[in-house]
Measured scan of single mutants.
Amino acid sequence: MSIQHFRVALIPFFAAFCLPVFAHPETLVKVKDAEDQLGARVGYIELDLNSGKILESFRPEERFPMMSTFKVLLCGAVLSRVDAGQEQLGRRIHYSQNDLVEYSPVTEKHLTDGMTVRELCSAAITMSDNTAANLLLTTIGGPKELTAFLHNMGDHVTRLDRWEPELNEAIPNDERDTTMPAAMATTLRKLLTGELLTLASRQQLIDWMEADKVAGPLLRSALPAGWFIADKSGAGERGSRGIIAALGPDGKPSRIVVIYTTGSQATMDERNRQIAEIGASLIKHW
């Protein structure tokens, strides 16, 4: 067993022997301040990774656009098919120029040779490549099948209805392509620590998230040296922004954090800054 596999296998073990965790309302004060600064709703939840206990939450059962955070769930569904012998990570998928959609920095470079399922998941999570996500959605049967996968996990809230990039439209009061912070946090925890996926697939999923290259201005910008984070960000229309993450000190994750916002007129930089400040408060009061 590799060191990384050992780390993920012992996530519940280490967490069980940690000192009790206590909620700190100071972080919620910052979440509410972010709402004021952005002029928009902000949803927040913080779960203990081992027990699933909610440590703090704000608007945990209000719907927010998922945006690209759905790509972690998508690759979880792909990995479940791999575990069941219905898919192979090494299978190569070929596609054409007509398949390319807006923001496809990886797939646009491989029109000639195609990409493997493993490479597509890596591109979808680490670079948020939209064509990679659409190609992977095709392998599982489309958005409705991802929703069905989530329902089978016990998540009857999260739903995907459309493809990239239309799913980022974020129309107010439109339930399409949305989740709730509580539902997303619980589902992410199941994917990373539950028995739904094999140990190898859980490790692969967290490795992809740990290698995320496009979430630097968010929670990662607030992390002290030595902290662990595996995350996936999302951005959408109407001032929408979000991030889902597993993080913790001492090089291992111990909490799940989900943050979503929508309806702001603020710039992307300002949305990023507010999420980073929430992260800084979380870490300060850990």
Rank of each mutant, 00 (worst) to 15 (best):
M1K: 01
Q4N: 14
R7W: 08
P12G: 11
A15Y: 15
A15F: 15
A16G: 15
H24K: 15
H24Q: 11
H24W: 09
E26D: 09
T27P: 06
V29M: 11
K30E: 07
D33V: 14
G39C: 11
A40Y: 03
R41P: 10
D48V: 05
N50I: 11
G52Q: 06
G52M: 06
L55Q: 08
E56Q: 11
S57R: 12
F58K: 07
F58E: 05
P60A: 15
E62D: 10
K71I: 00
C75R: 00
V78K: 02
L79I: 05
L79D: 01
S80E: 11
S80P: 01
R81C: 05
E87T: 08
E87N: 05
Q88W: 12
L89T: 06
R92M: 10
I93G: 02
H94V: 14
S96K: 11
N98C: 07
E102V: 11
P105C: 04
L111S: 08
L111H: 09
G114V: 03
M115G: 02
M115E: 03
T116A: 07
R118G: 15
C121T: 03
A124Y: 00
I125H: 03
T126K: 07
T126R: 07
T126D: 07
T126W: 04
S128R: 00
T131P: 03
A133L: 00
L135H: 04
L137P: 00
T139A: 15
P143A: 07
K144N: 14
K144E: 15
F149G: 05
M153S: 14
T158P: 00
R159E: 06
D161T: 06
W163G: 09
E166P: 06
N168P: 02
A170C: 13
A170S: 13
E175M: 15
R176N: 08
D177C: 03
D177K: 01
T178H: 02
T178D: 02
T187P: 00
L188P: 00
L188M: 12
K190H: 13
L191Y: 07
L191F: 11
L192T: 07
T193S: 15
E195A: 06
L199T: 11
A200M: 11
A200K: 13
S201N: 09
I206T: 13
W208Y: 06
M209K: 00
E210Q: 12
A211Q: 14
A215W: 02
L218T: 04
L219E: 03
R220T: 03
A222R: 15
L223A: 10
G226F: 06
G226R: 10
W227G: 02
K232R: 06
A235P: 00
R238D: 07
G239S: 05
G239I: 01
G239P: 01
A245W: 01
G248L: 00
G248V: 01
P249A: 08
D250K: 13
G251M: 10
P253T: 08
R255G: 02
I256L: 11
V258A: 09
T262H: 14
T262E: 10
S264N: 07
S264L: 04
T267M: 11
N272W: 01
N272Y: 02
E277G: 10
I278W: 02
A280R: 13
W286T: 01
